[in-house]
Amino acid sequence: MNRSINIDCDDALAAIDARYDGEATRLGDDDLDRHLHTCSECSDYAAHLVTVRRELQATRMIPMSQEAIDTVLALTVDQTVAPHVAQARGLRRLATAAVVALAVLGPWMVLRQSNDSAAVEDVERASMEVRYVMQLTFGALQRVEDVATEEIMESHVSSALTRVVDTWTEFTNPFVRKPGL
C-alpha cells in the first residue's frame, strides 16, 4: 500500500470518488492533490473515472416506443374519460326512470287530490308540470355529459335533483301557482 504524503491509498481513492462526484471529502483538496502527484495507482484511477464518465455521458437516453407510450396512456389517464361518461349515462337512465315514474304517478296524485268534476283540467295541468320537470332534468343531464371533471358533474346532478325535488314539492302543493300554468 502506498502511503505517500501520509495518506492511505484507500482513503485517497474514496476521496477521489467523492471529489469526482461533487460530494464532501474527508481529505483536504491540497493533501489529495499532493498524493495524486506522487501515486501513479491513484492518479490512474482518477483518469479511469474521467474516461468512464466521458464515454457513458455520450450514451443517449433510450425513449419508449410510441406503442408502449400509447399502451400506458390507454390503461391510465385515457381510461378516466370512460368512467365519467359511463357514470353520466347511468345517471341519465336513473333520471329517465324517475321522470317516467313522475309522468305516471303525477296525474294519479292530482286526480286523487282533486274532485271528479275538475279531474280533466287537473290532469292537463299535471302533464305540463311533468314536462317542466323533464325539461329541467334533461337540460341538466345534457350538460353533465359534456363536462370532464367529476366535481362539476356532481354539482350539475345535485342541482338537477334539487330542482326536480323542488318542482315536485311545488307540484304537489295545491296552494302554489306554477309558472306557465
Binding site: M61, I62, P63, M64, A68, I69, V72, L73, T76, V77
Partner: peptide, 15 residues
C-alpha cells in the same frame, strides 16, 4: 398530474 410525470420520466425510466 400523472401524464406530466409520465412524460417527464419515461425516457429515464426506460433507459
Amino acid at each position: 398530474e400523472f401524464r406530466k410525470a409520465f412524460f417527464d420520466a419515461s425516457d429515464r425510466v426506460h433507459t
